[in-house]
């Protein structure tokens, strides 16, 4: 597992001092994938540099399996870095080395014998599904294949923590999906803790167990992905599953914004609602998906009755959180003002 404690990083001195990370706390258990999202300039890459021990934090600590790694000497740091495998954005391969030689780099640095290195590299190539690409140069591989090589290289020294720094950025959706599946599989098989830094909300939904939003050097919101999605007041939850424009409501109907809660919702809830209220229910827009066995999402519906209290009771019974359009709370939700 990896823990980041009150991590603070400043650059420059005096009047030009800039605080890039301002007291960050993160904790990732073994077999957990935790995502950090945020706009560019939020401090994501500085966080990555601190976690991979390339930059020393100004204060605070990085703790891997109980060992405080951020307080080591330069020489000890070099050894400590080997406990964290880093996957870089796709340009991190050495152009004049084959896939196999790229994966063997950390072993070469460590001084592993060529025979043992060859065996380990073959193992890793097989692990990421590139056994037939050992002799290929990076420019002969697709973006997704290059990233598999990067993953194999990050695993070469058997780290317990993997840092993925925008690893799927710049890949097409298909390749991203394949990389996400590979990382999840590795997480389960090798009991890894994975810190997944990205700006792609879509990918977070696919891969992460928990997520934190970084903004101006602070974590402004964090939690389990499913909890955030079920919470209609969470702006991070809304950012992960954005509400898109819906079709206009019929005249005289009331528009409701519905969010799937943490309790299971019957699949035929629209029909059930119409039957129980004995009125018309129109589906105006919806986005629903199943993540790790739980159905999450939201819908916008129009109900042709003015008995709002009755409607609210029915929603509650169905396990849905609902807010009436035009109410203050919903306006805030739609404009994203809620903190």
């Amino acid at each position: 597992m990896i823990r980041v404690d009150q991590l603070r990083k400043e650059f420059g001195h005096g009047a030009q001092r800039a605080v890039v990370l301002d007291g960050l706390d993160l904790s990732i258990e073994a077999r957990e994938i935790s995502a950090v999202v945020g706009p560019s300039g939020a401090g994501k890459s500085t966080l990555a540099q601190c976690v991979s021990l390339l930059e020393r934090p100004t204060s605070g600590s990085v703790i891997v399996n109980g060992d405080v790694l951020s307080e080591l000497s330069e020489r000890e740091l070099r050894v400590a870095r080997r406990r964290i495998g880093t996957i870089f954005q796709s340009d991190g391969l050495f152009s004049r080395r084959t896939a196999a030689a790229n994966i063997g780099l950390p072993l070469e640095y460590l001084g592993v014998t060529p025979a043992e290195s060859r065996r380990r590299v073959a193992e890793l190539l097989d692990r990421v599904g590139l056994a037939d690409k050992a002799g290929h140069y990076p420019h002969q591989l697709s973006g997704g294949q290059r990233q598999r090589v990067g993953i194999a290289r990050a695993l070469a020294l058997r780290p317990s923590v993997i840092l993925s720094d925008e690893a799927t950025s710049g890949l097409d959706p298909e390749a991203t999906g394949a990389i996400v599946e590979l990382l999840k599989e590795l997480r389960d098989d090798l009991e890894l803790s994975i810190l997944f830094i990205t700006h792609e909300m879509d990918t977070v939904l696919q891969i992460a167990d928990s997520v934190a939003r970084l903004d101006q050097g602070r974590i402004v919101e964090s939690g389990h992905v499913l909890d955030l999605l079920a919470d209609p007041t969470s702006s991070l939850g809304r950012a992960l599953q954005p509400r898109r424009a819906h079709q206009p409501a019929p005249a005289d109907a009331t528009v409701w914004a519905v969010t799937y809660g943490s309790e299971p919702v019957p699949a035929d809830w629209v029909g059930l609602l119409a039957a129980r209220l004995d009125t018309t229910v129109s589906l105006l827009g919806a986005s629903i998906e199943t993540l790790r066995g739980t159905t999450t999402g939201h819908a916008t519906i129009a109900v042709s009755t003015r008995r709002h209290d009755l409607v609210e009771v029915e929603f509650h019974v169905l396990g849905l959180d609902a807010r009436r359009a035009g109410s203050e709370a919903l306006l805030e939700l739609e404009t994203g003002v809620v903190a």
Binding site: L130, K133, Q140, L141, S142, E174, A175, A178, D189
Partner: peptide, 20 residues
Amino acid sequence: TPLTRRPSTATEPTTRSATS
């Protein structure tokens, strides 16, 4: 030649023995 092959990231890898 690998250069003419279309990107094949989507085709899932065939064998994955439990290693590491």
